[in-house]
């Protein structure tokens, strides 16, 4: 399946992904409602975008009491607006902090991979975010292992 891959070492913190994401999510440019966020580290010299890794466990789906979270055609967990009652249980259940609640709509919202063509990957000017094929949904373990190996070998 295809998944968003994030390479923090390529990120320069320009936040273009947030602007593009917010347009897909809200129909306007409003980074405050982006479902990809960029965090700074190490004295403002490095940045890391993060968003829902579409984890195999699907904690948000398990927690939702009304079955408002489903899996869309792109394989992403997606919130059904008509069903969501805005109880925020999913935001508590999510171990990654990537379930959000919108006080304006009173609904939960999250990354739905833009239905299969993620705007953040399109917008990223440094290819820090790519939309790639991966062998398993739970790609984070492989990613971490590979990154650790690279860093130990001194390859950036």
């Amino acid at each position: 399946m295809r998944i968003l891959k994030i390479m923090p070492e390529k990120c320069t913190g320009c936040l273009r992904c947030e602007i593009a994401c917010s347009y897909m999510q809200t129909g306007t440019f409003q980074p405050a409602k982006s479902v990809i966020r960029v965090s700074p580290f190490e004295g403002h010299t490095s940045y890391a975008p993060y968003t829902c890794p579409q984890c195999a466990e699907g904690w948000c789906m398990t927690a939702c009491p009304v079955g408002a979270i489903t899996i869309n055609a792109a394989g992403a967990k997606d919130v059904l607006d008509d069903t969501c009652v805005g109880c925020k249980l999913c935001t508590i259940a999510c171990p990654y902090g990537t379930m959000f609640y919108d006080p304006d709509t009173r609904k939960a919202f999250k990354c739905n991979l833009c239905g299969g063509d993620p705007a953040c990957a399109q917008a990223c000017p440094t290819a820090a975010i790519t939309y790639d094929d991966v062998p398993t949904v739970d790609w984070l373990g492989d990613f971490a292992a590979e990154r650790t190996t690279r860093l130990l070998a001194g390859v950036r």
Binding site: C11, T12, G13, C14, L15, I19, H44, T45, P125
Partner: peptide
């Protein structure tokens, strides 16, 4: 390391050690 301004893809502003 790149330290870009809003939405910028230039390899211009950098922080360095």
């Amino acid at each position: 390391r790149g330290h870009q301004c809003n939405a910028c893809g230039m390899h211009h502003c950098h922080m360095q050690v």
